[in-house]
């Protein structure tokens, strides 16, 4: 295997990745790299499979072709055991929080520690309290997940994600559906975790202002391709119409307002040829 030396700076290198789901092509030959110790954002409109990218990195699904290198190891070709070993180095913050509903907040955060270490219970308790303190929820340790607000649930999930001090955190839509205050809290947390612990973060989101304020580097994905990348400033300056439309949030542009459809006029008049046309599509 020939590995470029550049992998030292990049924790993750994705090379020529192609992924299809059924007939639909999600990614067509994309390459990107995620620098160590930085916050990298992946942006794009809804439904283009940003979450899929995180699952690919986590090894939960396999690409059709291409490589996903995590510090040189190709995730899709790892054996089951090695994959599980590798996953101990990363963690993922799910959009829904994915807290275990049958455990309280404390046990949720203690769960990965209890699973992967043989630490005595009093040390586990100290670690959990530290993590809870970091997200500002030490007072909520005895609550059940269904007693938490959406923002609190996400912070608990974040505490659980950092319980084992991973090198890499994958954030799946961390800002979606949050009120402005908890959004602000989460933005601050992601930034401070990255700075304080030096961990590598990948944020998948479509919330432009939050991502612009937090990310060190941004990739914008649309229509199966990377349509733009750079630092937030570079993205703001980007002249490509696609990127401009996305960043400024315009309804119509290169990404059309209308979903692909036969001619409006024909459909209204209901000419018989349209039926044939539709049959061909």
């Amino acid at each position: 295997m020939t590995l470029p030396v550049a992998t030292l700076d990049n924790l993750i290198e994705i090379k020529n990745l192609t992924f299809t789901r059924g007939e639909r092509v999600i990614y067509n030959d994309i390459s990107l790299s995620i620098p160590t110790g930085k916050v990298t954002a992946i942006m794009g409109p809804s439904g283009i499979g940003k979450t899929t990218l995180l699952r690919l990195i986590g090894g939960q699904i396999k690409p059709d072709s291409g490589k996903i290198l995590l510090s040189g190891k190709n995730i899709p070709s790892l054996s089951r055991q090695n994959l599980y070993e590798t996953r101990k180095r990363m963690s993922m913050l799910f959009q829904s929080g994915a807290l275990f509903t049958d455990m309280n907040v404390f046990d949720n955060i203690a769960f990965p520690i209890r699973e992967h270490s043989k630490l005595p219970e009093n040390i586990i308790e100290k670690i959990v309290l530290m993590k809870l303190e970091a997200v500002g929820l030490r007072g909520a340790r005895d609550l059940q997940p269904n007693e938490l607000s959406g923002g609190m649930a996400r912070r608990v999930a974040l505490a659980r994600a950092i319980a084992l001090d991973p090198e890499l955190i994958l954030y799946d839509e961390p800002f979606a559906g949050q009120d402005p205050i908890s959004m602000g809290v989460i933005v601050r947390l992601i930034r401070s975790l990255s700075d304080a612990l030096g961990l590598t973060s990948v944020v998948v989101s479509h919330d432009v202002p939050e991502v612009m304020s937090i990310a060190d580097y941004i990739y914008i994905i649309a229509e199966q391709k990377i349509i733009g990348h750079g630092t937030p400033d570079q993205i703001r300056q980007d002249q490509s119409p696609l990127v401009k439309q996305f960043v400024q949030g315009k309804a119509d542009g290169p990404v059309p307002f209308h979903y692909q459809a036969p001619s409006y006029q024909n459909e209204l008049i209901k000419l018989s040829p349209t039926m044939h046309e539709r049959g061909k599509i």
């Binding site: 699952r55 986590g58 939960q60 599980y84 070993e85 996953r87 101990k88 990363m90 963690s91 993922m92 799910f94 959009q95 829904s96 994915a98 807290l99 275990f100 509903t101 769960f111 990965p112 699973e115 992967h116 994958l170």
Partner: peptide, 16 residues
């Protein structure tokens, strides 16, 4: 429900 709320996925990502 554990699948729908991503709890199964989340276990997998925790290497469990």
């Amino acid at each position: 429900l554990m699948k729908a709320t991503e709890q199964l996925s989340s276990l997998e990502m925790m290497a469990v």
